[in-house]
């Protein structure tokens, strides 16, 4: 199996893309720490995926916007697994509205979670990877971070920041055998996307227009994003670092 004897941590692993990533990594032999802000959701997802018969999936509750919490939780992950080979920074959140309607509290929250939260996790996990001389970090960015994303201005800024962070960090840690790459999904059929469409006519309209621009004329499935994450988490990509792989049906 591709990830035999490897250990991984996935943030936002309780549902959507993160849940699919946990399932894919565990299905390919990795022991996985499933991190989510919602402890109940983490336990449910971990128990479901453990039930599929792969290696252990262990739930952890953490708010990644808190550096102290991140430090504490990865301490417990290391106690459990002994080491960490793979980190998938997946937690993310957005509400679609025009920038002119955003409040400063809103974009502070967007940047805290979608950019600084991932920096927290990388900062805590990297010393161990550097000591081990091995590591795979996969940041889930977004096509929104590369193209203009109407109605997602702050989110696009955070994701564009995450892409720049990915490339610079890749340069800094390549000498220690640590690869840092990013998967950039287009709109993906997750619970978050469906809820957004339900709650907001604006989001529904913008996303419908965006779908028409996708050459494949459909949104991504979470499993399709997970497959690209698996590529970056596996030895198949050992000579790839600092790259962004769009999984978006030709959108970009």
């Amino acid at each position: 199996m591709l990830l035999e004897n490897k250990t991984a941590a996935v943030t936002g692993g309780g549902r959507g893309i993160g849940e699919a990533v946990v399932e894919r990594l565990a299905g390919n032999g990795a022991r996985v720490a499933l991190l989510d802000k919602n402890g109940e959701r983490a336990r449910e997802a971990a128990s479901r995926i453990s039930g599929l018969g792969g290696p252990e999936v262990v739930p952890f509750e953490v708010d990644i916007t808190s550096y102290d919490q991140v430090k504490e939780v990865f301490g417990r992950v290391l106690d459990r697994f002994g080491r960490l080979d793979i980190l998938v920074n997946n937690a993310g959140w957005d509400i679609m509205e025009l920038f002119i309607d955003n409040r400063p509290e809103f974009w502070t929250k967007i940047l805290d979670l979608n950019l600084k939260g991932h920096m927290n996790c990388c900062h805590v996990v990297l010393p161990g990877m550097i000591r081990a001389g091995y590591g795979k970090i996969v940041n889930i960015s977004s096509e929104a971070g590369r193209t203009a994303a109407y109605g997602e201005t702050a989110y696009a800024a955070a994701k564009g920041g995450l892409i720049s962070f990915t490339r610079s960090l890749a340069q800094e840690v390549s000498r220690y055998g640590v690869c840092v790459n990013s998967v950039a999904p287009g709109p993906t059929e997750t619970p978050m996307l469906k809820k957004g469409i339900q709650l907001s006519e604006f989001a529904a309209r913008v996303l419908e227009e965006r779908k028409a621009l996708i050459p494949m004329k459909r949104f991504a499935q979470p499993g399709e994003i997970a497959d690209a994450v698996l590529f970056f988490a596996s030895p198949l990509s050992d000579y790839v670092t600092g790259q962004v792989l769009g999984v978006s049906g030709g959108l970009c």
Binding site: P215, A220, V240, G242, Q243, L245, V247, S248
Partner: peptide
């Protein structure tokens, strides 16, 4: 679902 992308395999 991946199409039209450039994947550099360059060791950075």
């Amino acid at each position: 679902y991946i199409t039209g992308v450039i994947l550099p395999v360059t060791g950075g």
